[in-house]
Amino acid sequence: MFEVGKRWKRVLLQIVVTVMVLPYLFPVIVMLQGSLAGQGFGNYKAVAEVPGFARFFLNSAIISASVVALVYLCALLASYGFAKLRLFGREVYFWMLLACLTLPEVVLLAPLFTTDQKLGLYNTYWAVILPLAALQVPFAVLLTRNFIAGLPEELFEAIRVDGAGAVRTFKHLVLPLTRPIAAAVIIFTLIAAWNDYLMPLVFEQAKTMQTITLVPTFFVGQFNDNQTDILAAAVITAIPEVVAYLGLQRLFERGLTAGAIK
C-alpha cells in the first residue's frame, strides 16, 4: 500500500511498526516476568501440582469440543437447506436465526438459571454447551450459507441428474467443498467457547466442573493474592491457546479470509 522508495524511509517505516507493536507485547512480558519472580520455573511446577488443576483443562476441552461439533453440524446442515434446497418461508426462518446474532449472553441468565435448576442441568456440561452452541449457530450459518450459495449450481445439478438425493449430495458434495469455510467456523466457535467466562461462572459452581477461564479466580482464593503464582497460573492457561494459534496460524488466516466480512 505504502510506496517508499528511499532506503532511509523504509527503515523509518520499520521503526514505526516496531514502536507501534510494543504496547501489544508489554502485557505479555509483564505476565511472563511476573510469573517467573522468585523461584523461576518452580512457580509453574507449584501451580501445576495444585490438586484439580488438570481438571480445568479437561472440562474446557470437553465443553469446547462439544460446542464446536454441535455448531459445525447444525450450521452445515442448515446452510445446505437454506442455500440449495426447496424451502417455503426461507427468509422468515433465516431472519429468526439472524436476530439471535445481536443477543448478549447475559440476557439468558435469568431463564437459564431457573430452568437449569428445574431440569437438574446445573453443574453438568450441558448447562454450558447448549447455550454457547445456540449463541454461535447464527453466525456460523451466516458464513456457511453464503459460501454454499456461492458454489456453482452446475455441480448440484450434475449430481442430482445422476440420481443422488439430498443426503448423498450433502455427503459427497457439500462436506468436501465446504472445508475452507469450515475452518473459519471451527476457529470462531473454538475461540468463543474456550474463552467464555460468564456461562461457566454461573452454571458450573462445582469445583470439578469448572473451566480454565475460572482458573484465575480459583487461584486468587487458593493463594491469597500471591501474585506470582496467580500469574504463573495465567501463563499455563494461556499456553494451549498460544500454541494452538501458532500451529493453526495459516488456517486462521485462511478461515478469516474465506469468511471475510466485507
Partner: peptide, 28 residues
C-alpha cells in the same frame, strides 16, 4: 430427482437456536 425439502435440514439449528434462545427471551 426432485429438489428435496430443506426443512428437515434446518431443523436441528432451529430447534437448538430458536428453541433455546426464544424460549429464554419469552421467559425473561
Amino acid at each position: 430427482v426432485k429438489l428435496a425439502s430443506g426443512l428437515p435440514w434446518i431443523l436441528p439449528a432451529l430447534v437448538l437456536c430458536v428453541g433455546l434462545i426464544y424460549y429464554c427471551i419469552g421467559y425473561t
